[in-house]
Deep mutational scan, measured.
Amino acid sequence: MPVRRGHVAPQNTFLDTIIRKFEGQSRKFIIANARVENCAVIYCNDGFCELCGYSRAEVMQRPCTCDFLHGPRTQRRAAAQIAQALLGAEERKVEIAFYRKDGSCFLCLVDVVPVKNEDGAVIMFILNFEVVMEKDMVGSPAHDTNHRGPPTSWLAPGRAKTFRLKLPALLALTARESSVRSGGAGGAGAPGAVVVDVDLTPAAPSSESLALDEVTAMDNHVAGLGPAEERRALVGPGSPPRSAPGQLPSPRAHSLNPDASGSSCSLARTRSRESCASVRRASSADDIEAMRAGVLPPPPRHASTGAMHPLRSGLLNSTSDSDLVRYRTISKIPQITLNFVDLKGDPFLASPTSDREIIAPKIKERTHNVTEKVTQVLSLGADVLPEYKLQAPRIHRWTILHYSPFKAVWDWLILLLVIYTAVFTPYSAAFLLKETEEGPPATECGYACQPLAVVDLIVDIMFIVDILINFRTTYVNANEEVVSHPGRIAVHYFKGWFLIDMVAAIPFDLLI
């Protein structure tokens, strides 16, 4: 008679799926529990143990900040960024110097990925580790590398530091407007667009060049630039800015003055950032001319202004700041037409079709709590990747769950009947059967004279019903998954307890 339990259901295979997918890609990662103190490590794979030199037993239950890997060259700011990422709910990448158990130093890129439950609360953290440099290539500990984003994938490793954006290309926007319009339909740009040429040739750093990471940081200074100062900065030398009595002219307006920039070969870094931020506020060169004239017309309804409409929906549905990093990277690809469009465009503009998908598509409701890094690593669709929660398995109709209350009560009843059979069957065979043979035949009273025979008949009927119930009862397979398919249940029961239950259900007393 089957006594099969499996009270692990309803099970959740999400954690096993993450481990299996990460292991298949030869990654070095740990999984931490966000619900406990210090976000203790609950799993670390073999790749991480080989990377740091510690065994799994030495890593388990330690804080996922990996303070046991810190050393003299470990930056405090990087460690603080990892700790801050564990307090938030967004994906974050941090470069930090770690030390192995043998004392060797290596520069590592740590990717902190939160995993949320159905309520939107962070319950786990996945920390992925990628070695960037070994100890002989690690720089000085005073050099802070965590304020910069990861290198873009479309640049060669040897040319990542030679990417320079020439400031004269930004200063000569109005001069290039006529050349853009003359391109017409034969050019790649839309009317009114501004073409910015980027020099990728390796050259020595000069005062006129600005690194790509500095251009990325310009967006942080746009908020500090007032509207009046932006307007004066875009007017140009024809209309000098008016300053109040006793007030000095704005240095932001002076930063885009061609006369002032041409007199000296070098520009201050602050002026460069502010000038680029001011130019980015204009949607095209037409807006710059309109600002000089004193009238700013409404933005025209053409394809170039609607190019950012799908980007707005993608940004609203993005799951991490990696989408913004990807957008900034692609927006700086050289030799393309940049349409400086305000994100607050007309909502009635139709979304044009684009061959290049900048932001990841909208994630469906079932995966809105899973970050983009987890979705990318697992390579699963929205119909396959579940949320991290207890999910009731989908069972067929008329199927009994093996952990249901009805099955528990039924098993206790069958257990009592088995005990009765084990006690009274030998007793009936030894004593009652002998008395029946010696006594007179009682054929007239039937079952009324033999109450134990009636009980034995009921017990046999219950055993037959138990066999039928076992054909529709779920079970737990070797992978700790609840199986509810009727065919698989029948095959599993035939290979197991079916023969024993059938022999126990045969009414031998009635056959004798």
Rank of each mutant, 00 (worst) to 15 (best):
V3W: 13
G6M: 15
G6L: 11
G6I: 07
A9T: 08
P10H: 10
F14K: 08
L15P: 05
L15N: 01
L15V: 14
I19G: 01
R20C: 07
R20G: 10
S26D: 15
S26V: 05
I31V: 10
N33D: 06
N38H: 15
C39K: 14
A40K: 08
I42A: 01
I42S: 01
Y43G: 01
Y43N: 01
D46M: 05
G47F: 03
G47L: 08
C49L: 14
C49K: 03
E50S: 06
L51C: 03
Y54I: 01
S55P: 06
E58Y: 10
R62E: 08
T65S: 07
C66A: 03
D67H: 08
F68S: 01
L69P: 01
G71D: 01
P72W: 01
T74P: 01
R77C: 06
A83C: 01
A83Q: 03
L86H: 01
G88R: 14
A89R: 14
K93I: 08
V94G: 01
I96R: 01
A97M: 09
A97F: 15
D102K: 01
G103I: 01
C105A: 12
C105I: 10
F106D: 01
L107K: 13
V110I: 06
P114Y: 01
V115M: 10
N117C: 15
N117G: 15
E118W: 15
D119K: 13
I126S: 06
I126V: 12
I126W: 05
I126E: 01
E130F: 06
V131M: 15
V131S: 12
V132M: 07
E134I: 04
K135T: 05
V138N: 06
A142Q: 15
H143G: 13
H143R: 14
T145H: 06
T145A: 14
T145M: 05
N146C: 15
P150R: 13
L155G: 10
L155A: 10
A156M: 06
G158R: 07
R159V: 12
R159T: 11
A160F: 15
K161H: 05
R164D: 13
K166R: 12
L167P: 15
A169P: 12
A175S: 14
R176L: 06
E177N: 13
S178L: 04
R181G: 06
R181K: 13
A185I: 06
G192F: 01
G192K: 11
V196T: 01
V198W: 03
D199V: 01
D199R: 01
D199C: 01
L200C: 13
T201A: 10
T201G: 14
P202K: 07
P205D: 12
S206V: 09
S206F: 06
S207T: 12
A211L: 12
E214I: 05
H221Q: 13
V222E: 13
G236W: 05
G238E: 11
S239T: 12
P240F: 15
P241L: 12
R242F: 14
G246M: 06
L248Q: 15
P249G: 05
P251C: 14
H254Y: 13
L256I: 09
N257Y: 11
P258F: 08
P258A: 14
S261Q: 06
G262V: 14
C265L: 08
A268I: 14
A268Q: 15
R271T: 14
E274G: 08
R280V: 12
A282Y: 15
D286N: 05
D286K: 05
E289I: 06
E289S: 04
A290P: 12
L296N: 06
P297K: 03
P298I: 05
P299F: 03
R301P: 10
R301D: 11
A303Q: 11
S304L: 12
G306S: 14
H309W: 12
L316K: 04
N317E: 14
N317H: 09
N317C: 07
S318V: 08
T319S: 09
D323M: 05
D323N: 13
V325P: 12
R326P: 11
Y327I: 08
T329M: 03
S331G: 08
S331T: 14
K332E: 14
Q335Y: 04
V341Y: 04
D342L: 01
L343M: 12
K344H: 14
D346G: 11
F348G: 13
K362A: 09
K364A: 12
K364T: 07
E365A: 12
H368N: 11
T371W: 06
T371L: 10
T375V: 14
Q376V: 08
L378N: 03
L378A: 05
L385G: 05
